[in-house]
Amino acid sequence: MVGTVVSDRMDKTVVVLIERTVKHPLYKKYIKRRARYSAHDESNSCGMGDLVQIAESRPLSKTKRWRVTQILEKAV
Results as ranks from 00 to 15, higher is better:
Val2Trp: 09
Gly3Tyr: 07
Ala55Met: 13
Leu17Met: 11
His40Pro: 02
Leu72Thr: 09
Thr21His: 10
Asn44Ala: 12
Leu26Gln: 14
Lys74Ala: 13
Lys74Arg: 15
Arg67Glu: 03
Glu73Met: 05
Val5Asp: 05
Leu51Ala: 10
Thr4Ala: 06
Ser43Asn: 14
Leu17Val: 01
Met1Phe: 10
Thr63Gln: 12
Lys62Ala: 09
Val76Ala: 12
Tyr30Cys: 00
Glu19Ser: 08
Asn44Thr: 08
Leu51Val: 15
Ser43Ile: 00
Lys62Val: 00
Ser7Trp: 05
Val15His: 10
Gly3Cys: 06
Val6Asp: 04
Cys46Ala: 13
Ala35Met: 01
Glu73Ala: 04
Ile54His: 04
Ser7Pro: 03
Ser45Ile: 12
Ala39Ile: 07
His24Ala: 13
Glu42Arg: 14
Arg34Asn: 02
Arg20Asp: 10
Gly47Thr: 12
Lys12Arg: 15
Tyr37Ser: 01
Val76Gln: 08
Ile54Glu: 02
Ala39Phe: 07
His40Ile: 02
Val5His: 05
Met10Val: 04
Glu42Trp: 12
Gly3Asn: 06
Lys62Asn: 02
His24Met: 11
Val52Thr: 02
Met1Trp: 03
Arg9Ser: 15
Thr63His: 14
Tyr27His: 09
Val52Arg: 02
Arg33Ser: 02
Val6Asn: 09
His24Trp: 09
Leu51Lys: 15
Gln53Gly: 00
Val14Leu: 11
Asp11Val: 07
Arg65Cys: 07
Val76His: 03
Tyr30Asn: 05
Ile31Val: 11
Gln70Phe: 03
Leu72Cys: 03
Thr63Lys: 15
Gly47Lys: 12
Thr13Met: 04
Val52His: 05
Val52Trp: 08
Val15Tyr: 14
Val2Arg: 15
Leu72Ile: 15
Pro25Met: 11
Met10His: 10
Met1Cys: 07
Arg9Lys: 15
Asp41Glu: 02
Asp8Thr: 03
Val52Asp: 04
Cys46Asn: 02
Ile18Arg: 11
Tyr37Pro: 01
Asp11Pro: 03
Ala39His: 09
Val2Ala: 06
Gln53Val: 03
Lys62Asp: 04
Ser57Gly: 07
Lys62Pro: 00
Leu60Cys: 03
Ala39Trp: 08
Val15Asp: 06
Asp41Val: 06
Leu60Ser: 04
Ala75Gly: 04
Gly49Arg: 08
Cys46Gln: 08
Asp11Leu: 06
Val15Lys: 14
Gln70Ala: 14
Lys23Trp: 01
Ser45Asn: 09
Thr21Asn: 08
Gln70Tyr: 03
Val68Asn: 03
Ser43Leu: 09
Tyr27Thr: 05
Met48Asn: 06
Val5Glu: 05
Asp50His: 02
Pro25Cys: 05
Arg9Leu: 15
Met10Cys: 02
Lys28Thr: 01
Thr63Cys: 07
Gln70His: 12
Val76Pro: 05
Arg36Phe: 13
Ile54Pro: 01
His40Thr: 01
Asp41Tyr: 10
Asp50Ile: 09
Val22Phe: 09
Glu42Thr: 09
Ile54Tyr: 04
Gln70Arg: 15
Arg20Leu: 11
Glu73His: 08
Ser38His: 13
Lys29Glu: 11
Lys28Gln: 11
Arg9Gly: 15
Cys46Tyr: 08
